[in-house]
Write a protein that binds this DNA or RNA. Structure first.
Lengths: 248, 248
DNA sequence: AACGTCAGTATGTCATGACAAACACTTGAC
DNA sequence: GTCAAGTGTTTGTCATGACATACTGACGTT
């Protein structure tokens, strides 16, 4: 076999780093099944050679895949694509993105939207000075015309100056943030459960005391600034969280 | 200031890689507060110089910290320790470890323990041949003498040959696995909620229909082998999950 | 037949050198 | 006084070369 090098093309004049071009190419090959689970990649030296790259660059590309848990390397042995079921996406996603990807036609109703000085506990969660302005929103998220989640969100007013309720109704919060140039990087979430209050049950179309999934999240951008605090409740019979953990 | 290089010592004759020695040293300095949040590290060139290392090695060490979300780098600016609140441990932990760390004196009651061919859905979850032997356990976990969680676990019999119910009563599952040389690396979890069944309510000391947190987890070792499948339920009023996500 | 040894192979670690790109700050022009 | 251009600093990317270490398999000895 000639190996898979022939399936990868790199563009030396692209502003995209070479190692990244190679990494994404390999990723695509694995996702598409052209590199099946358990198959062995060529050695990094051979690959580097065939692609006309140096070994460190090739290593950097493969290290990227190791990091994502897509391949496993063993000294003296080689590089293998891991078992398919292990390959779950580990991402910082918003509910809207998730639903859209799952083809569950999300719809959003903006129940409240205001800008005001932050209450004590919100200021703490966002690491803001007491009294700093925050955008407060309350939204009801539907999937396939069934209510699914009730979401309270708080953002420092500074991070998304031109934010409007209309934008939130059209797109997800994270999507809107991305258009504002915000790059989320780390999120701390607390996931729990409790009974629905009367008001929540009514909004979500559930019975009284129905079990709800709760989630509080603080999200930070690449510079470590707190960007968003959210407190959400989900109908437990229609939603669950999928989380992947990678030990370091 | 002379910088922090003087606080780091490296041992060229240690089998521990140089970049790793530096990375852990820096990590310690950050954890201990000697490198306070927001402070700037020396440039990688200066650090490499003072420590007698090459720049790539120094970069590898710092990249490790970036990966963990401990520091942030900006081209033309430098490397900064991120805000303290962002620095949450991202780990693959077991409930027992968590409780022990939180000083909540865990105790475990082993309700069932057996070795038998895997039922269909368990074999699928663990990616085993149908009919392969699995260890099946059912445990009730207490914290401060209050029931907290009911845990069903399934392990391929091959991964932990000498496992006994006594070990499970004494130590956590992950702790026992570690003594068997198993290194967990990736876990896929699904977290949801539902009402307690009558049996669950009785075991957990809850009322009928009380909300429970549910978690299904499949854990894999460094080679991508499925090691454990667990299906757990937690008292929602006494437990919640904390999860940190890092975008890649 | 079982065990130990040795060679081959692949990844892991480290050094040196060079250029590119982004950012902050200063300087200069209008 | 304000804005733009330029300069220096710092990280990002890439190449080449070398030695170390872990695993596999074959060979030889006991």
């Amino acid at each position: 076999m000639d190996g898979i090098a022939s399936l990868i093309t790199i563009d030396r004049f692209s502003p995209v780093p070479l190692y990244f071009q190679v990494a994404t190419s390999l990723e695509d090959l694995i996702e598409s099944g052209k590199l099946p689970a358990g198959s062995r990649l060529d050695t990094e030296v051979a690959l580097a050679d065939r692609l006309g790259l140096s070994r460190p660059t090739m290593r950097q590309a493969i290290a990227h895949l190791v990091d994502k848990g897509l391949v496993v390397r063993k000294r003296g042995v080689g590089t293998q694509v891991v078992h398919s079921a292990v390959r779950r996406k580990v991402e910082l996603t918003s509910l809207n993105d998730d639903l859209r990807r799952a083809q569950r036609s999300p719809r959003t109703e903006v129940l409240a939207f205001s800008v005001a000085p932050a209450p004590e506990h919100i200021a703490v969660a966002l690491h803001l000075e007491p009294g700093a302005d925050v955008i407060t929103t309350q939204r009801l998220r539907y999937a396939e015309d069934e209510p699914l989640a009730l979401m309270h969100n708080y953002l420092p007013a500074a991070v998304a100056p031109g934010l409007t309720p209309e934008q939130l109704g059209e797109h997800g919060l994270y999507q809107v943030l991305r258009t504002h140039g915000v790059q989320l990087r780390i999120a701390d979430q607390t996931i729990g459960a409790r009974r629905a209050t009367a008001a929540e049950a009514r909004l979500l179309g559930e019975g009284r005391g129905a079990p709800l999934l709760t989630m509080q999240r603080t999200a930070y951008d690449h510079a470590g600034r707190a960007i968003e605090y959210g407190s959400h409740v989900y109908r437990a019979d229609r939603y669950s969280f999928e989380v992947s953990l990678v030990a370091r």
